[in-house]
Amino acid sequence: MGAAVIQTKGLGKRYGSFWALENCNISVPAGSVSALVGPNGAGKSTLLKILVGLNRASAGQGEVLGKAPAQEESFLSDIGYLAQEIPLYKNLNAADHIKMGAHLNKRFDKEFMQKRLKDLQIPLDRPVGKLSGGQRAQVALALALAKKPKLLLLDEPVAALDPLARHDFLSSLAQAVADGGLTVVMSSHLLADLERVSDHVIVLAAGKTQLCDEIETVLNEHKLLVGPRQNKIPEDDFAIIHETHTIRQSTLLVHLKKGAKVPNGWQQHEPNIEEIILAYMGQAKEGGEK
């Protein structure tokens, strides 16, 4: 994977006295499909909006494709964005949206979008307000992709879709990534979908970054340890992300530091990415309650 396409340092957003996003440090490598996960209100939408220049950060810096996000053509032309509610002009049909894209973007691939919608059998002449949710999402995705962006930011694009439409949407997205030159950041609650489509993960909880790394690295560096309750583990080598105890047994999800070995007396299991993500979200919640 390539150099960082997104790099943030201490990024924060305050609404009144409430920090929706605080001290957010992430780095997204070029060519990756990054999953942005976290509970509701964790600041996912806020982060994406700041990155695309729709909202202004209250603190810190963000660099996207080497530039500070701004409402300018030179910045916007390389970025595609799909908002949570999948906004489209309801009274206009898909053909109008294609024309809109062509008029509002210098580098817009009309033929690509026409072909995509034709392949998906989406009628071009019907107002998009009358299309199904899945079709609307596909029109919006095609519109964002036809812009030929280098970075695509998607805010819970599949949340409102049925499983089939979801599969089709993710398949369209994967195809676009396969064509190369595209980095994707996609927020979602559907961890199972993310695992197959993504290769990078950002966990945001309580307004802060909990985890930001490649999924493979995350899987390698996290272990599920099961052992007798009284067993101690060397804290220098492990960070305990999540622990559960019964009277006799402890189950720990730990982050292995470099070169750490699992101590004797502990049974070692491989957690899946879903378990790891949930553990980080749980940790943030406990931290927030303390």
Partner: peptide
């Protein structure tokens, strides 16, 4: 091809 696989099973092309 990678593209055929991702179209079919909606998976990250890097994985394929």
């Amino acid at each position: 091809t990678v593209k055929e696989v991702v179209t079919h099973i909606a998976i990250n092309p890097n994985t394929v």
